[in-house]
């Protein structure tokens, strides 16, 4: 019955089924180069994690919807995006079952149990990644060194065991390494080249709003500039703006996760608040929290939590997005 209403609260589209699919296809296309880069840098295990995560997400959505007698919406492609994003947030050394459990949690607990696409209040992939990280901290540590081009090479786990270059000894990576992705990290967060290309594509195609990534990056730039005082110098190690912007999940988060239209504010002002807030939270966690040197996921999740409130405060009443969904329910 409920599925008959073609109104989801957030992707406001006319022909939902078709348009959501087109939208998701664009997102998948934008993520594809990064997926290829992750396989290039991290080899077969990256491919395996991507496949397991996507298959589990799709299967999870399919069986949940079958089991609860709903219309199966797997073909809209949103489960594929979630699975892919989740894999992007795993280290190459993660076992296959983490990808599977993570995808199932993202799809079932975070998304479907709250009503499916458009109704979840948290980014499913991000919430699941964080759950995995809090559950199996050591298995989720991104300490696999990249081995570009060596497809089937055995995984070498770096003994330093620090998550992302942020914890490394200063200046151990050049700017080019940071930019091209030749650094340890989660699968999809290392290669800034492909991430920026994909993000730009999404902005041009108007799939995502430029306001969130731009305000996110600008605020982060300013905050780290105030803190470190240098934009870039090789001697300052990680204590400079560019190093901070190019390490960890910041770029991936700013373009692909903070922009999720279901879990980010709808108004232009709200979106700028979202970007600024994400950067602010990220800065606080990175600067002061020694136990999680990388705070991007937590920062975005925190702003996800505040999104309904931001919407309430920034969306003018007559156009409140809550209304259509409410009236649709009575229909």
């Amino acid at each position: 019955m409920q599925r008959k209403l073609i109104v989801a609260s957030s992707p406001h589209l006319r022909n939902e089924g078709v348009s959501t699919r087109r939208l998701m296809l664009d997102v998948v296309l934008a993520m594809l180069p990064t997926a290829v880069a992750s396989v290039w840098f991290f080899g077969g295990s990256a491919l395996m994690l991507l496949v397991v995560a996507i298959l589990s997400a799709v299967a999870g959505e399919f069986f949940y919807q079958k089991h609860t007698h709903q219309k199966v919406t797997v073909s809209d492609g949103s489960a594929i995006v979630t699975g892919m994003l989740l894999a992007f947030n795993l280290p190459a050394s993660a076992p296959w079952w983490i990808a599977m459990i993570g995808s199932l949690i993202a799809i079932i607990l975070v998304k479907q149990m709250f009503g499916g696409l458009g109704n979840n209040f948290m980014n499913p992939a991000l919430a699941a990644r964080t759950i995995m990280m809090l559950s199996w901290t050591s298995l989720m540590a991104a300490n696999v060194l990249p081995h570009a081009g060596q497809w089937l090479a055995p995984q070498t786990v770096d003994a330093v065991a620090s998550a992302t270059p942020l914890g490394e000894s200063p200046a151990s990576y050049t700017l080019w390494q940071l930019f091209s992705g030749d650094i340890p990290g989660m699968l999809g967060e290392t290669c800034k080249l492909t991430l920026l290309a994909g993000g730009l594509y999404l902005i041009i195609r108007r799939v995502i709003d430029w306001r969130i990534p731009v305000s996110f990056l600008v605020t982060a730039f300013v905050l780290f500039w105030i803190k470190t005082g240098t934009i870039y110098s090789a001697e300052s190690g990680s204590e400079n703006v560019l190093y901070q912007l190019l390490s960890g999940g910041l770029i991936l988060g700013a373009f692909f996760m903070a922009t999720d239209y279901v879990t980010s504010p709808v108004s232009p002002l709200g979106r700028i608040i979202m970007g600024v807030g994400c950067a602010g939270m990220l800065f606080v966690i990175r600067a002061f929290n020694p136990s999680y040197p990388e705070g991007c996921s937590f920062a975005i999740l925190f702003m996800n939590v505040l999104t309904p409130l931001i919407d309430k405060l920034t969306v003018p009443k007559p156009f409140g997005y809550v209304k259509p969904a409410g009236s649709a329910k009575e229909a």
Partner: peptide, 15 residues
């Protein structure tokens, strides 16, 4: 078995 540590942390309590 790898214990799912989040279950004994605050979010796990609620969920």
């Amino acid at each position: 078995y790898h214990p799912m540590a989040i279950v004994i942390r605050p979010p796990g309590g609620f969920v």
